[in-house]
């Protein structure tokens, strides 16, 4: 087992939409990989891990510790340990910036907020519950209703004056959006309104846990500039975005794996 600084560890994050993997060598990010989860979480875990190793040119045997996370964490049968995405996202954000005290993670199916201590350990957290409002899926459904490409969705919202979308339910919000389209509301205003609605949902959850700056945003939705702006407006604090936002959970898992790898003092 590798115990020195050259230790190789991996983190696998099986989310509802994508499977992510990160390789750490001696405490440095040596590779990342993202692919669709699909129907079989177990297969997705193996595939994303194989691809990660292939791209990095590392043989499987050299990886001393693997930690899995995300909803499919228990399906990754080759992982040494499964840790929840709450703990992993905290660790991942801390790895990128140890000053971070609060993480907002918005993924495909869930959004969550975590307050961290100075060691990147989660002190308190909250997650959305049984509802897609304020998640990546919400934005995806809305982008489809608006016939806007998801990648342009956030940027488009920046040029609009938010139209009022009162419903917190994805299904009802979609019908509200359709009514707004029918009423001739400008597309960018509707898109801005959609971002406002999602941001207010997430910011309420963040305030429940208590926002402590500096705040970092992670998860796939962190790529959406409109969401960042809307959230900054709601919370009144600047948000930094992890350069590894989408693979942040897997990164945290790989980091925790490297700590497990270290012999206890």
């Amino acid at each position: 087992m590798h115990t020195g600084t050259d230790a190789i560890t991996a983190g696998i994050d099986i989310g509802s939409i994508t499977a992510k993997a990160v390789l750490l060598i001696g405490g440095e990010i040596a590779g990342t990989c993202v692919r669709f989860t699909g129907y079989n979480a177990k297969k997705a875990g193996r595939a994303v891990f194989d691809e990660l190793l292939k791209e990095a040119g590392i043989a499987k045997e050299r990886v001393s510790m693997v930690v899995s996370t995300g909803y499919g964490r228990n399906a990754v049968d080759f992982a040494d340990k499964a840790i929840t995405e709450i703990t992993c996202h905290g660790a991942g954000a801390w790895f990128i910036d140890p000053a971070v005290r609060f993480v907002i993670d918005v993924g495909g199916q869930d959004s969550k907020v975590m307050r961290l201590d100075e060691n990147g350990k989660v002190v308190d957290f909250a997650m959305n519950d049984k509802c897609a409002a304020g998640t990546g899926r919400f934005l995806e459904v809305m982008a489809r209703a608006m016939e806007v490409d998801l990648d342009d969705f956030g940027a488009l919202s920046l040029s609009g004056e938010p139209a009022r979308i009162s419903s917190i339910c994805t299904v009802f919000a979609e019908s509200e959006v359709i009514s707004l389209i029918a009423a001739g509301e400008a597309r960018e205003n509707i898109v801005a309104g959609i971002h406002e609605a999602a941001a207010s949902r997430i910011s309420a959850m963040a305030r429940r846990v208590g926002v402590v700056p500096p705040v970092m945003m992670t998860g796939g939705v962190a790529r959406n500039k409109g969401m960042i702006m809307a959230l900054e407006g709601k919370l009144g604090v600047p948000l930094s975005v992890s350069p590894y936002a989408q693979v942040n959970g897997a990164l945290g898992a790989a980091l925790l794996a490297s700590r497990m790898d270290r012999p206890h003092p």
């Binding site: 929840t84 709450i86 989660v122 002190v123 519950d129 049984k130």
Partner: peptide
């Protein structure tokens, strides 16, 4: 119908990790 197993499991696991 109001019990979402995987969501509750994640919360409990994360709480125990804390």
């Amino acid at each position: 119908r109001h019990f979402a197993e995987s969501q509750i499991e994640t919360r409990i696991d994360a709480f125990m990790e804390i």
